Computed example of a mutant assay.
Amino acid sequence: MSRDFVNSICRDLPGAEWSDPWGGGHDAWKVGDKMFACIGTANDGVSVKTPDIETAQMLIDAGVGVKAPYFHRSWVRLPFDADEDEMRYRLVASYDLVRASLTKKVQATLPQRS
């Protein structure tokens, strides 16, 4: 998989927006102005949010991902050679988690999730 694969999944999520907040070639995907996925300049994987530190650690222990540099411990970085279904699942789960954490007012402004 690649940056393009990840970006194609994120691009299709309702209300998802791309940015490069730090410059230099980052792909940061946000919903309601909160990040749910980020590809760094090293271009070796994508960082995603998990529900909690324990889930992130479980994914790290299982070899699915590694600690996401520069992010809270509830984030993991999935390498581009991760299983395609796992990658898709984790990206969508991260999006859903972040979207659900938004205020009801902000959620109401977003396109419906099918």
Rank of each mutant, 00 (worst) to 15 (best):
54 E>D: 11
25 G>N: 03
55 T>Q: 14
11 R>A: 12
93 A>H: 12
108 A>P: 08
63 G>F: 03
74 S>F: 07
22 W>V: 04
60 I>H: 07
54 E>M: 09
114 S>Y: 14
1 M>G: 10
86 E>Q: 14
64 V>I: 14
110 L>V: 03
11 R>G: 08
66 V>D: 07
99 R>S: 15
90 R>C: 04
112 Q>S: 08
87 M>S: 11
50 T>L: 12
12 D>A: 07
10 C>A: 11
32 G>V: 01
15 G>I: 01
39 I>C: 11
56 A>F: 05
107 Q>N: 10
113 R>A: 10
35 M>D: 09
109 T>W: 12
28 A>E: 02
70 Y>H: 15
5 F>I: 10
29 W>D: 01
106 V>S: 08
113 R>K: 07
2 S>G: 11
57 Q>K: 06
31 V>F: 07
26 H>M: 04
91 L>H: 07
60 I>C: 13
20 D>W: 02
22 W>C: 01
15 G>C: 03
112 Q>P: 04
97 L>V: 07
6 V>I: 10
35 M>V: 00
88 R>M: 13
69 P>S: 01
27 D>A: 05
11 R>V: 02
87 M>C: 13
68 A>Q: 13
40 G>C: 06
46 V>E: 09
61 D>W: 02
19 S>N: 05
112 Q>A: 13
93 A>R: 05
4 D>E: 14
14 P>N: 06
29 W>R: 00
73 R>N: 14
33 D>N: 09
102 L>A: 10
25 G>M: 03
38 C>K: 04
55 T>K: 04
85 D>Y: 03
53 I>L: 01
25 G>W: 00
13 L>P: 03
83 D>N: 07
14 P>W: 02
28 A>V: 05
38 C>V: 12
9 I>L: 15
35 M>G: 01
76 V>M: 09
56 A>D: 03
107 Q>A: 14
18 W>R: 01
103 T>H: 12
58 M>Q: 14
55 T>L: 03
111 P>K: 10
28 A>L: 14
15 G>E: 08
16 A>R: 12
20 D>P: 00
59 L>C: 00
70 Y>F: 12
96 D>S: 13
55 T>A: 08
15 G>T: 11
79 P>E: 07
29 W>H: 08
3 R>H: 14
53 I>W: 02
52 D>H: 04
70 Y>C: 13
72 H>G: 11
107 Q>H: 05
24 G>L: 00
68 A>T: 12
7 N>M: 06
63 G>D: 01
42 A>I: 01
63 G>I: 04
32 G>L: 00
5 F>Q: 11
68 A>K: 13
82 A>E: 15
4 D>K: 06
70 Y>P: 12
61 D>C: 05
